[in-house]
Protein backbone atom coordinates (compact mmCIF):
# COMPACT_ATOMS: atom_id res chain seq x y z
CA UNK A 1 0.00 0.00 0.00
CA UNK A 2 1.51 3.31 -1.05
CA UNK A 3 1.79 6.42 1.06
CA UNK A 4 -1.07 8.19 -0.74
CA UNK A 5 -3.38 5.31 0.15
CA UNK A 6 -2.26 5.63 3.76
CA UNK A 7 -3.01 9.38 3.81
CA UNK A 8 -6.43 8.87 2.18
CA UNK A 9 -7.16 6.12 4.70
CA UNK A 10 -6.37 8.34 7.70
CA UNK A 11 -8.34 11.28 6.23
CA UNK A 12 -11.45 9.22 5.55
CA UNK A 13 -11.33 7.65 9.02
CA UNK A 14 -11.00 11.08 10.70
CA UNK A 15 -13.93 12.41 8.63
CA UNK A 16 -16.00 9.34 9.64
CA UNK A 17 -15.39 10.02 13.33
CA UNK A 18 -16.21 13.73 12.84
CA UNK A 19 -19.46 12.90 11.02
CA UNK A 20 -20.56 10.47 13.73
CA UNK A 21 -19.78 13.06 16.45
CA UNK A 22 -21.87 15.63 14.55
CA UNK A 23 -24.69 13.09 14.30
CA UNK A 24 -24.51 12.58 18.07
CA UNK A 25 -24.34 16.24 19.10
CA UNK A 26 -26.94 17.85 16.81
CA UNK A 27 -30.28 18.82 18.35
CA UNK A 28 -32.10 18.80 14.99
CA UNK A 29 -32.87 15.14 14.39
CA UNK A 30 -33.32 15.52 10.63
CA UNK A 31 -29.84 17.06 10.32
CA UNK A 32 -28.53 14.26 12.54
CA UNK A 33 -30.03 11.70 10.14
CA UNK A 34 -28.28 13.41 7.21
CA UNK A 35 -25.00 13.38 9.17
CA UNK A 36 -25.50 9.67 9.81
CA UNK A 37 -25.95 9.12 6.06
CA UNK A 38 -22.71 11.04 5.43
CA UNK A 39 -20.94 8.85 8.00
CA UNK A 40 -22.21 5.73 6.26
CA UNK A 41 -21.10 7.01 2.85
CA UNK A 42 -17.60 7.77 4.18
CA UNK A 43 -17.50 4.30 5.72
CA UNK A 44 -18.32 2.79 2.32
CA UNK A 45 -15.50 4.87 0.81
CA UNK A 46 -13.19 3.42 3.47
CA UNK A 47 -14.27 -0.11 2.50
CA UNK A 48 -13.50 0.74 -1.11
CA UNK A 49 -10.02 1.98 -0.17
CA UNK A 50 -9.45 -1.31 1.69
CA UNK A 51 -10.28 -3.16 -1.60
CA UNK A 52 -13.64 -4.65 -0.58
CA UNK A 53 -16.04 -3.37 -3.27
CA UNK A 54 -18.78 -5.88 -2.38
CA UNK A 55 -19.04 -4.57 1.17
CA UNK A 56 -18.79 -0.99 -0.12
CA UNK A 57 -21.82 -1.45 -2.41
CA UNK A 58 -23.85 -3.10 0.36
CA UNK A 59 -22.92 -0.37 2.85
CA UNK A 60 -23.78 2.42 0.40
CA UNK A 61 -27.15 0.86 -0.41
CA UNK A 62 -28.30 -0.23 3.02
CA UNK A 63 -26.52 2.25 5.30
CA UNK A 64 -26.69 5.45 3.32
CA UNK A 65 -30.13 5.14 1.74
CA UNK A 66 -32.43 2.60 3.41
CA UNK A 67 -31.57 3.23 7.07
CA UNK A 68 -31.73 7.00 6.47
CA UNK A 69 -35.16 6.59 4.86
CA UNK A 70 -36.37 4.54 7.85
CA UNK A 71 -35.00 7.11 10.34
CA UNK A 72 -36.63 9.99 8.43
CA UNK A 73 -39.94 8.11 8.41
CA UNK A 74 -39.65 7.61 12.18
CA UNK A 75 -38.86 11.34 12.71
CA UNK A 76 -41.87 12.21 10.55
CA UNK A 77 -44.05 10.18 12.93
CA UNK A 78 -42.77 11.97 16.07
CA UNK A 79 -41.09 15.35 16.65
CA UNK A 80 -38.24 16.95 14.72
CA UNK A 81 -36.43 18.69 17.59
CA UNK A 82 -34.85 16.88 20.52
CA UNK A 83 -36.03 17.98 23.96
CA UNK A 84 -33.64 19.62 26.39
Amino acid sequence: MGVEFFIANILVLILTVVASLVAMLLRDLLAAAVAMAAMSLLLSLEFFILQAPDVAIAEAGVGACLSTAIVIIAINGTKRMEDE
Binding site: P53, D54, G61, C65, L66, I72
Partner: peptide
Amino acid sequence: TPGGGFQGGAIVASGCAMIVV
Protein backbone atom coordinates in the same frame (compact mmCIF):
# COMPACT_ATOMS: atom_id res chain seq x y z
CA THR B 1 -18.20 -8.00 -11.30
CA PRO B 2 -18.20 -7.02 -7.62
CA GLY B 3 -21.63 -7.26 -6.13
CA GLY B 4 -24.33 -9.85 -6.28
CA GLY B 5 -27.93 -10.47 -5.34
CA PHE B 6 -27.90 -8.73 -1.99
CA GLN B 7 -26.01 -5.63 -3.13
CA GLY B 8 -28.03 -5.11 -6.31
CA GLY B 9 -31.28 -5.74 -4.45
CA ALA B 10 -30.31 -3.11 -1.87
CA ILE B 11 -29.64 -0.61 -4.68
CA VAL B 12 -33.01 -1.27 -6.38
CA ALA B 13 -34.80 -1.08 -3.03
CA SER B 14 -33.05 2.27 -2.43
CA GLY B 15 -34.56 3.55 -5.68
CA CYS B 16 -37.99 2.35 -4.61
CA ALA B 17 -37.54 4.04 -1.21
CA MET B 18 -36.72 7.24 -3.12
CA ILE B 19 -40.12 6.91 -4.86
CA VAL B 20 -41.81 6.40 -1.48
CA VAL B 21 -40.18 9.51 -0.01
